[in-house]
Design a protein around this nucleic acid. Sequence first.
RNA 1: GGGGGGGUACCGAAGCGGUCAAACGGGACAGACUGUAAAUCUGUUGGCUCUGCCUUCGCAGGUUCGAAUCCUGCUCCCCCCA
Length: 427
Amino acid sequence: MPDIFSDLQWRGLIHQTTADDHLPQWLESGSRTLYAGFDPTADSLHVGSLLPLMMLRRFQKAGHRPIAIVGGATGMIGDPSGKSAERNLLSAEALQANIAGIEAQMRHVLDFDCGDQSAVLVNNNDWMKEFSYTDFLRDVGKNFPISVMLTKDSVKSRLGSEAGLSYTEFSYMLLQAYDFVHLNKQFGCELQIGGSDQWGNVTAGIDLGRRMLSQQLYGMTCPLLTKSDGAKMGKTESGAIWLSAERTSPYQFYQYWVNVDDADVSKCLRFLTELSHKEITALDAAREAAAHQRESQKKLAEQLTLLIHGQAGLDQAMRATEIFFGAEIENLKDADLMQIFGDVPNSSFPMDQLGGEGLGLIDALVATGLQNSKGNARRMIEQGSIYVNNRRNDNLNHRLTAADLASETTIVLRSGKKKYAVLKFTD
RNA sequence: GGGGGGGUACCGAAGCGGUCAAACGGGACAGACUGUAAAUCUGUUGGCUCUGCCUUCGCAGGUUCGAAUCCUGCUCCCCCCA
């Protein structure tokens, strides 16, 4: 078996393990089954799930079998770890839809059809729903001394806070611990991985395995992927970066990574890509020497977009990037433009507006919402910040006519560096 | 309940009868520069049919040729005394 442990170590992906001295040999001496949990709070994963997902992928490529578990049952309850308040509970139907969406995305990263190492996706609700409350208390609950539960950080911090901790949340750890036991029984799963904030839940599962099954189970946590300023990776002012193309277009996804700070990019390369040590060290060196070329960011964006959105998604993102950053827009087809400007606000006008006098540029800017008043629009034009099809236009009296069409029916307006609006002319 | 102070544009804050669409600072937006960065510099920052016109200074009235500025009532906020 390949030595995955030292690769993980080199990448800085190992935060804590339950058996530092034993784990490397254990992993090398046979194909193991391991699992990680994912949050089913939305119908798509976001960038925050990329790290554990890549971890599973690394293990799979090293000859092990990954299990991704979505918390259908635990998702209805909410993990108190690292949360400052109790979360809203999800309905069963919503959960089902979310799980379906998440599975589709996992297929890009994990191989679900490769014999013994095929990835498995399970929903803990499938076994939890059969459990009666009293059975659960008898079989599982009695193995949890309250004194131990109270020492967990996730519990301690919430007990001291204003929000408090409900009994439901307090029980979360039992459910997650039981997942591990169940997966061991059903799949022979012996290793749980997760973020460093999951340590308490991971060790709870290991304890339960020892008590219920007399089994030696293992745990490993990774550092959380945070930015150098302490903020979480994957959040922007406009919200989270999602893996689904419907929620975050491939272009936006690509852009997010291209814009990662110099201080964070090396970590991202190590944590989230499969580039070799050599390639990463070379990129680090290149960045030292010529940060402005941003090779690291480009490589990172390219790798991740390719993995999540495929070659077509990457091509689309690159083409959109070229256009969004200045390339003149002309002689294109409607279909191309729609792909590139899919997530840009657009407004429709009757085709005959382009005939005769044409449509005033000022009016068009206001109609698209690119400017909120004519006075503003006028000012922006005077300041040279208005572009028609990416060609600067500082003519206050300009009127859009058929000659301005970038494709069959479309004109693209831009205000400032990157605010775009699409004008569609229809019959 | 008694006394005092105050509500100004996105925010903070000047203005206290005409020259006020309202100083100044922050923010925001734009331009130059740049690495799709930071810093810096410059411009803009109520609306419009834009060298002019219209609507804004807690709300409603009033005085005046003229009010953000003076008077009356209302309302909200802050401070002190009881």
